[in-house]
Design a protein around this nucleic acid. Sequence first.
RNA 1: GCCCGAGUGGCGGAAUGGCAGACGCGGAGGACUCAAAAUCCUUUGUUGGCAACAACGUGUGGGUUCGAGUCCCACCUCGGGCACCA
Length: 945
Amino acid sequence: MAHADSDIPNFRYSSALAQDIELRWQHYWDSHGSFEAPNPAGPLGDRAAVAGRERMFVLDMFPYPSGAGLHVGHPLGFIGTDVFSRYKRMAGYNVCYTMGFDAFGLPAEQYAVQTGQHPAITTAANIANMRRQLARLGLSHDKRRSIETTDPQYYRWTQWIFLQIFNSWYDTSANNGVGSARPIAELISAFEDGSRATPDGRAWSSLSKGEQRSVVDDHRLAYVSEAPVNWCPGLGTVVANEEVTADGRSERGNFPVFKRNMRQWMMRITAYADRLIDDLELLDWTDAIKTMQRNWIGRSEGARVRFASAAGDIEVFTTRPDTLFGATFMVLAPEHPFVALLTTADQADAVAEYQSVAKAKKDIDRQDATREKTGVFTGSFATNPVNGQQIPVWIADYVLMGYGTGAIMAVPCGDHRDFEFARQFGLSIPAIQQPPASWFAERNIAESLDTSTWPEAFVGDAVYVQSANADGLELNGLSSVTEGKRLANEWLQARDRGHGTVNFRLRDWLFSRQRYWGEPFPIVYDELGPIGLPDSSLPVLLPETESFSPRTFDANDEFSNPESPLDRLDWWTDIDIDLGEGTRSYHRDTNVMPNWAGSCWYELRYLDPTNTDVLVDKEVEQYWMGPQGDGHPGGVDLYVGGVEHAVLHLLYSRFWHKVLFDLGHVSSKEPFHRLFNQGMILAAAFKDERDVYVDAASVQEAGGQFTFEGKPVTREWGKMGKSLKNAVSPDEMYEAYGADTLRLYEMSTGPMDASRPWETRDVVGMHRFLQRIWRNLVDEETGELRLGAAADIDTVRLLHRTINDVRADMDDLHFNTAIAKMIELNNALTKLGACPHDLAESLVLMIAPLCPHIAEELWSKLGHTDSLTNTPFPVADPALLVSENTELPVQVNGKFRSRIVVPTDATDDQVRAAALADDKVIAALAGATPKKIIVVPGRTVNIVA
RNA sequence: GCCCGAGUGGCGGAAUGGCAGACGCGGAGGACUCAAAAUCCUUUGUUGGCAACAACGUGUGGGUUCGAGUCCCACCUCGGGCACCA
């Protein structure tokens, strides 16, 4: 940091000085454990240090350690949570704030396969690099609490939670009908003592051992089943519904995904569907995310109705049982098992052909709503239960096997799809509701119940017509759909033709992957099925092997079969162990858990990372995450992360947390009480004439035109990253300005929840601000403090207004406006020429959460010997927030014409008089008599003439 | 198609229904310098005017109000989510 050869003062706040200060203070914080937060009990316990302090659990969505390293877009949220954590510490809170790494999963494994390096090695190297880059930002993490999901001491508990889920069932009658997970042992006892009937009604003791096992396994919250799953040959594994994009490809790698029946592990998340929707009410999340979760879970109320047919009852799900009188045909999904039974000989060829065409289509093609309706008649009929009518049964690919029952009753007059289908194939469309006159008027047609004149189906509340039978169901004249549904459901239920029910879009969670880099299942098999290993055998270590590459296939080879890498390891898969029947051989489960497993519960482990007895001590969990008063669900006080996890991580982790809550392991109903979605940092990306991205850093701008190596390029805005060649490394910013400037810049460019473009040339503004603060307090030539005498009253008032505003902004995560106000204060100090000591201290404490290194350095220059980490944040004196006189703008007829200065405590009449006496007001009135004068105290005066 | 957001200077953005454009970048002018960089000072919504000042101005069109960027209605554009879900 020698400036001997230049004329820059030796103690100017330059990038070199900033780096010197930053590294020194980072070392100080590390060596003093400045950010270690005490627990109320356990290994990190310090009861005395906890006493009398409110808790604050601040959490970032932990990062995935990729090989590419960080760019300046990554730490936006981390800086925000750090500023907030530091502010809350100074406001007296006990703050739990740390960071771990989500390190199992496909990206690390794909990278390992590409490089030939074992994923354990590349993952460790990536984590080390990421820790280094993050450390340089000066984040105030409690480093004792950091975890890595790949650490056996961590995934031991991931496996333990899996076993808890495996060893539980969902008792829908528990907790006043809300339902609750309960230990599977309680289910077995209930079967044994007869208090719960077996599925087929036989006595439990008369079931064979295999039958008993199978009955119990069918109830588990984690279970193996043969079901349609998403098979991704390009990845060599199955993936969850949530990991398949809208166009039928894998979110990772963008490979085609095929629906195939396979035996896989599932998690019974659907048991929690209602609670996952209902408890959203308890959360401080944005409506956008809540809506996304509600849509994903997709709750719809309706009824199951059975239509008699030659193949037996065809069960359908409908949200409109009140429209049964309008059901004039049925449609089965082409894959429906009844199709074979219902198809008549003369329709056999047409049906077979349609089925094979449908099968060849990907889901994405079948789900294109704009496509013309296609379908084939099976040749058979079914009986409409409300009127005995024989209605034709068709198959069509707009009915999906995966939703509801894979069969629908078609009500063409009241459903757009059924209407189109009926028109297409000339099926009858009787009206069962009288649409209002406005409906006809909007469509420019005459009012008529002759649907051949209708351009489309009518959907909504309207009077029912032609909706009655001789058997007591009478809807005619009713106009309430709610009431119609209720009557229809009652009628169906009474005659055992159906019942009201709730259907969900949410499917059970496909939990197994045929890959290497994940948590092994703590499961072995005997000839009857899966057996959970005892807790004492945890962790089940991921076996060491150089043969970690998954067997992948041609991405389009739909009929290939997954092969787990672990399956190749005979020495590992075959195990001799005593599970209560004496030592014998078992075969291990060779799947691994999905990426999401480790992130489903990591916030709990942060609380008690070294506990070897339980995943988290109950008292510790209660302290950091327990409910805060009536109706509060408990959970992390502030969770910050990107919106991209709206339905994956955030749904899965809520589910796991609720299971742990039901089983009594945690006191919080929900893991994340307040969720905040930070925006993304966008950056300009440039394409040349071949549409290829060019290195954004080398693009020149002149007069609004962009060129790369002399050739014109076009600009677009996108997410910062390698693929757009527009990444800016934080290392460059540390070098040019230091970490405090980078932190301040990122916080100043906009509100936390907004995405904003990165502009390297703008960063200097925040560097100049820090230079000016420094220069106001420190002599640039000598490095000594240069402070002045007491400030005038206006400056003191400005200080207290600033303190007041900054506190409010910090509490609301409005860091950009907090910064603006501190810049204003500092600019006022610059004009003052010299800063008094007490004012300097207040300013330094206020900037400390945002730019902690320079603040610590100035704090120590101000004569303090220890860190300001826990020094109280300045408090405004209410008496100094008001001044004697107030300037008020005066409007005449709504236009601002003048300003008057009045005593702050002036009465409305005094303000009125002052306004009317003002020269400009008199001129604006031009002799007119005021009709009305509105005084808004402290704000404005409006004279209406 | 349905459901959410958001449209403010050249740019990022600020504004409990009460002086639109805080703060920063950029631009213009100046100081320092042999010069440049860095730094500092002044200025900067648009139009007209030497100026005081005036008119206009928050996507478009209406409305509510003493007063609207802010509230209501309709529309346009952009971003996001869901989508033949029965």
